[in-house]
Amino acid sequence: QEEEKEIKRLAKKFNASEEEARRAWKKAGGDPETAEKILKKKG
């Protein structure tokens, strides 16, 4: 599933848990760029 792959990639890229990545993904409405910004800010 595309979403799961994206979440795993985000978690790995930002050294975050999949739970954090999933939360960022949901907050971003499934937009990878926005999710990255959220995780970057958090990191």
Rank of each mutant, 00 (worst) to 15 (best):
K41P: 07
G29D: 08
E4S: 07
A28I: 01
S17Y: 03
K40Q: 14
K26I: 14
G30S: 04
A21G: 02
K5H: 10
A35P: 00
W25L: 15
G29V: 05
K27Q: 15
P32G: 05
L10R: 01
K12R: 12
A16F: 07
K37R: 12
G29Y: 07
R9N: 06
L10F: 03
E18R: 05
E19G: 05
R22I: 05
L10Q: 01
A28N: 02
K8T: 08
E36R: 05
R22V: 04
G43R: 15
E3M: 11
E2Y: 11
K8C: 11
Q1T: 12
G29L: 10
K8E: 08
E19F: 07
A21D: 00
R23G: 07
A24D: 00
K40D: 10
A35H: 00
E19V: 07
N15L: 06
K41I: 10
W25M: 10
A35D: 00
E18P: 07
E36I: 07
E36W: 04
S17P: 06
E3F: 11
F14R: 02
L39R: 01
K40E: 14
A21T: 07
K5P: 06
I7T: 02
R23H: 12
I38H: 04
A16P: 00
K13Y: 06
E20S: 07
A21I: 06
R22F: 07
A24Y: 02
K37G: 07
E6H: 10
A28F: 01
S17M: 04
L39D: 00
P32I: 14
K8N: 07
K42L: 15
N15T: 05
D31K: 05
L10Y: 02
A28P: 00
R23Y: 14
S17I: 03
G43L: 15
A11H: 02
E36P: 01
R23W: 15
E33I: 13
F14A: 03
T34D: 05
K42R: 13
E33K: 12
N15C: 14
E18S: 04
A21Y: 01
G29M: 09
S17N: 05
E2D: 14
K8Y: 08
E4Y: 09
F14C: 14
I7M: 04
E2A: 10
K37F: 08
P32R: 14
K41N: 14
A35T: 05
A11Y: 02
I38R: 02
R9T: 05
A11C: 11
K41E: 14
I7W: 07
Q1G: 12
E2G: 09
G43F: 15
K13N: 04
A11I: 08
I38N: 03
R23L: 13
A24M: 02
E36G: 09
A21N: 00
E2H: 10
A16D: 02
A11K: 04
N15Q: 09
R9K: 09
A35Y: 03
E3C: 12
G43I: 14
P32H: 07
L10T: 01
K42F: 14
S17H: 04
A35G: 00
G30P: 01
T34A: 13
E20R: 05
E20L: 06
A16G: 02
K12Y: 09
A16Y: 04
K42N: 13
K26D: 13
G30Q: 04
I38V: 04
E20P: 00
S17K: 04
A21E: 00
K37I: 09
G30W: 03
F14L: 05
K41T: 12
E18F: 14
E20T: 07
D31L: 04
K12W: 08
E2K: 08
W25Y: 11
R23K: 11
K37E: 12
S17A: 04
A35K: 00
L39Y: 01
K27W: 12
S17T: 14
K8F: 08
T34Y: 10
L39F: 03
K42D: 12
A11E: 03
W25A: 01
W25K: 01
P32D: 03
K42Q: 14
D31H: 09
E18K: 05
K5Y: 12
K13E: 06
K8A: 10
E4Q: 08
E2F: 12
K40C: 11
E2S: 11
N15H: 12
N15M: 08
E20A: 08
K26N: 13
K12V: 10
K26S: 09
P32S: 11
E33W: 11
L39E: 00
G29F: 08
K40L: 14
A35V: 07
E36K: 05
K5S: 11
K27F: 10
N15W: 06
G29E: 09
I7R: 01
K5M: 14
R23V: 09
A24V: 05
K13H: 05
F14Q: 02
G43P: 11
Q1D: 14
E19Q: 08
E3I: 12
E18V: 13
E20M: 06
K40P: 02
A11P: 00
S17E: 03
L39H: 00
K41G: 14
E6Q: 11
G30Y: 04
K12Q: 11
S17V: 03
I7S: 01
K40A: 15
G30K: 06
R23C: 15
A21V: 13
A11Q: 08
E33N: 09
I7H: 02
K5Q: 12
T34H: 08
A11L: 04
I7F: 03
K42P: 08
A28Y: 01
K27P: 01
K5A: 12
Q1V: 12
G29N: 11
E18Y: 15
L39W: 01
E19P: 04
R22P: 00
E36N: 03
E6M: 13
L39G: 00
K8V: 08
S17Q: 03
L39T: 01
K41C: 13
F14V: 03
F14Y: 15
E6C: 09
D31S: 06
E33L: 13
K27V: 10
E20Q: 07
K40S: 14
K8P: 03
G30N: 04
A28Q: 00
A24G: 00
A11F: 02
K27D: 15
T34K: 15
K26V: 13
K12A: 13
